[in-house]
Design a protein around this nucleic acid. Structure first.
Length: 185
DNA sequence: CAAACGATCGGCT
DNA sequence: GCCGATCGTTTGC
């Protein structure tokens, strides 16, 4: 997916629908010359101002959340628990801080590279594992989706889509029950 | 400046 | 199922 196409796709203000639609897409990176990629099999939607689980809840704007307020079609990468990188796709128009967390991929290419980066534990099931396998870190924060380093290809999801509550957001009050986690099974 | 807190993972019981 | 690792980010004094 080219940058312009990615921009159109991610410009919708319905981040929940987009999270579901993203399942089955293929995500690739070429980092340090190594091609890696897989099919997106799990996502979560974070719906900006009104979502207590979202970093940009109530339009909270900090150096970290700044890129979430940019126009959709770029990456939001941040560090979690001091040691893990997590990848999101920013969606929505300028000023609307929505994002989609990429939680899991099914491996496609670059198995050797991903194994070398990850060791032999599960390759890409878990948002930090996805980033480690694909070589993603903060240097891709704010980076366009659709570049030499990171791009998408459209694909149709195979299997059934299961929706459920999001992971690790018990602090979000009632919003923790929202079924905004989508998995391909 | 100090302190608390994670959109997690891996190891162990 | 539980627990510790580990540090960037945020907030409060």
């Amino acid at each position: 997916m080219e940058a312009s196409a990615a921009a159109d796709f991610f410009l919708s203000d319905d981040v929940v629908a987009l999270s579901r639609k993203l399942l089955g897409y293929r995500l690739y990176t070429r980092i340090d010359g190594a091609l890696t990629g897989g099919v997106i099999t799990e996502t979560e939607a974070y719906r900006g101002p009104e979502d207590r689980a979202c970093h940009a809840y109530q339009n909270r704007r900090t150096p970290r959340t700044e890129v979430m307020f940019h126009k959709g079609g770029i990456c939001y990468v941040y560090v979690c628990y001091g040691m893990h990188h997590l990848l999101n796709f920013v969606t929505g128009g300028e000023g609307l801080p929505h994002a989609i967390l990429i939680r899991a991929l099914a491996p496609l290419v670059g198995l050797d590279t991903m194994l070398a980066r990850r060791g032999r534990t599960p390759l890409m099931s878990g948002p930090a594992r996805v980033c480690q396998a694909l070589g993603i870190d903060k240097h891709l924060n704010g980076h366009p989706i659709g570049s030499q380093s990171l791009w998408l290809e459209a694909g149709n999801p195979q299997g059934t889509i299961v929706a459920g509550p999001r992971v690790g957001i018990d602090y979000a009050g009632e919003d923790r029950h929202l079924p905004w986690r989508f998995q391909l099974r």
